[in-house]
């Protein structure tokens, strides 16, 4: 059918877990941004949501780390985090194994992708779903890019992953929504948690939203580590979505550094026309 929605957002565990510690003004504006994105997703009437995420050792570890992986199950469990800490109750999220199989098979034509018939969500997917599909009634196809355990997939492969996803999304009969979720510059889970390089984030988002491929692919891991921290490696999810939405006009709906959430909280969408 077609790609009917493409969005980008952060997934900080603080968005839900540390809400009471945040400055109310930017926090509530972030929540309003998520609500706008939820309504846009709902209006698009998708049959499934492909989430390009950057999981944090909930499923994949350095014993067998896939550069790219796609879930292939009829349901997924999560989040793995303590519910009192994340403030999201563990639940079951519907998947679509048949759709996943078709996506995996097609993506494999261009990018070597692992598949997983078992997948536990962590905050990387659970937080966006909490805001965007709070009834957990939309089948999800989780896709992961290794953004945590170097060596990491190079950016040109992430772009190619996005392009491969788009090709199959355009070919399947279902209406597909696409969401990329990651932090941009951040130093999460460290004593520097809260540090945010706003100028770097804004420049990066400009490149993503305008699909400036060459400038996006010009970042090196050394640049990113220096300027955007180890958390900045999650930029890969945005690069993939940019690769999947070439020709669409991107729009930044919300960006604001929220230190206790450890990120410049971001909400953006691609106008697919």
């Amino acid at each position: 059918m077609a790609l009917v929605f493409a969005g980008l957002c952060g997934h900080g565990p603080g968005f839900t877990g540390r809400a009471e510690l945040a400055d109310p003004e930017p926090r509530d504006a972030l929540y309003a941004g998520f609500e706008r994105l939820r309504l846009a997703l709902e209006d698009a009437k998708p049959d499934a949501l492909v989430v390009v995420a950057a999981e944090h050792f909930a499923n994949f570890f350095m014993d067998n780390m896939p550069a790219f992986a796609i879930g292939m199950a009829d349901s997924y469990e999560g989040p793995i985090e303590d519910p009192d800490w994340l403030k999201i109750e563990p639940t079951s999220v519907p998947g679509n194994k048949d759709l996943s199989r078709r996506i995996v098979s097609a993506v494999m034509q261009d990018v070597d992708v692992a598949y997983a018939e078992e997948w536990k969500f962590d905050h990387g997917i659970a937080v966006p779903l909490h805001f965007l599909t709070p009834r957990y009634d939309l089948p999800v196809v989780p896709a992961n890019i290794n953004c945590q355990g170097p060596p990491l997939p190079p950016l040109h492969r992430c772009w190619a992953f996005g392009e491969a996803l788009r090709r199959v999304i355009d070919a399947v009969p279902e209406r597909i929504a696409l969401l990329g979720t990651g932090g941009i510059s951040h130093w999460p889970a460290t004593p520097d948690s809260g540090k945010i390089n706003e100028a770097w984030d804004r420049e990066f988002l400009e490149r993503v939203l305008n699909h400036r491929r060459d400038e996006l692919l010009a970042y090196t891991d050394e640049d990113v580590y220096r300027d955007a921290g180890q958390g900045g490696f999650e930029m890969r999810t945005y690069v993939a979505v940019a690769g999947a939405t070439q020709g669409a006009e991107g729009e930044l709906w919300f960006y604001e550094p929220i230190p206790v959430f450890a990120v410049g909280a971001t909400i953006a969408a691609m106008n697919l026309g």
Binding site: G14, H56, E81, D82, W85
Partner: peptide, 28 residues
Amino acid sequence: VNGQILMHFSALHGIAWPDYIEALRQGL
């Protein structure tokens, strides 16, 4: 230990976020 793994381990023990960050500072 990767902070993402450590953060989840800390959450498992019900340690509040500010206490987790402070524990890392004290460790350094």
